[in-house]
Design a protein around this nucleic acid. Structure first.
Length: 291
DNA sequence: ACCGCACCCTGAGCGC
DNA sequence: TGCGCTCAGGGTGCGG
């Protein structure tokens, strides 16, 4: 599940591969995909352009082009961006895994979930966008144009301050976990890192946001930043679909304290990790360490 | 204004 | 072996 760390790792790795390369050809899926920009328009607007930089806002990636237009990409739940030499089982489902075995040249073969493929004028590695569950978003933005999705975003979670978190929590009766997931408050935190940050901060996810004391707010702001930075260093969390652009797995999932550890002992007190549903999201915590 | 909840989608896992 | 059900959750939008 791509959250801020996974999106940032994709940005950093991809930047080294695609910046300053010129787009020669864009292939879009034959099957229907929720393109926010019609495929034909996407193809013609990207073709011939040089990629100058990749930016990130929350979980959104922005490919900056030499005509000052931008390609907005959201990976949704299962979106993957990777190069043509990235051949990993996570890039195929059961049906198409056979195709992987028959690829001696170790080059990715686009399957039915590959919705966009970009070739470059230097004929080097291609860039692929794949998304099985189709929750991802692709949107082309003309020069100077923006989008409500970006406008709505709160401060980037990597630079959250106690002051901002405090003001945002003021008089909010929603669970602190739900507040952390609100992209208009804090952009980039998803279910995994919300649970992990709350564990590190020793706060119960169901605590109302308004109930946090200043000291607790201060600690939480710090742990959010800490958890995200550590996950970026480890290449993100590979659970279901996420891979780095070269096809390798992230490693942060090996260091989870609570996420996906229901019934397993807390690393600190050995009490079993509990799972409850908060705001329609499964939430994992230690009932004795977190207050 | 605030908050809960349904919905979009596909594949994995499970019980029968 | 296969069918049908449930679950995963980021973001959007609607109803109370």
């Amino acid at each position: 599940m791509p959250e801020l760390p996974e999106v940032e790792v994709v940005r950093l790795r991809l930047r080294a591969v695609v910046v300053n390369r010129r787009i020669a050809e864009v292939q879009t899926a034959r099957v229907n995909y929720a393109f926010l920009t019609a495929p034909a328009r996407l193809r013609s607007n990207l073709q011939g352009r040089r990629i100058t930089e990749i930016d990130r806002q929350g979980k959104y990636l922005l490919f900056l082009l030499d005509d000052h237009s931008r390609l907005l990409v959201h990976l949704g739940m299962t979106g993957q961006l990777f190069t043509s030499h990235a051949v990993s089982p996570r890039l195929y489902n059961k049906q198409s895994r056979a195709g992987l075995a028959h690829t001696p040249a170790r080059v990715f073969v686009p399957d039915k979930h590959t919705h966009l493929s970009i070739s470059f004028s230097d004929r080097g590695e291609q860039l692929h966008f794949r998304d099985t569950r189709k929750f991802g978003k692709l949107l082309w933005l003309a020069q100077g144009k923006t989008d409500p999705r970006l406008e709505r975003l709160g401060v980037d979670a990597l630079s959250i301050t106690p002051e901002h978190l405090g003001v945002s929590s003021n008089r909010r009766r929603i669970a602190i976990k739900t507040l952390l997931l609100d992209q208009s408050v804090l952009a980039g935190v998803g279910n995994i890192y919300a649970d992990e940050a709350l564990y590190q901060a020793r706060l119960l996810p169901q605590r109302s946001a308004a109930s946090l004391r200043p000291e607790e707010t201060r600690v939480l702001a710090r742990t959010v930043r800490k958890v995200l930075k550590r996950a970026i260093r480890l290449g993100g969390s590979s659970i279901d679909d996420y891979v780095q652009p070269d096809g390798s797995d992230g490693q942060f999932q090996n260091t989870f304290s609570v996420y996906g550890r229901e019934g397993e002992p807390c690393h600190c007190c050995r009490a079993p990790i509990v799972r409850v549903v908060i705001g329609q999201r499964s939430s994992h915590f230690c009932a004795s360490c977190q207050k």
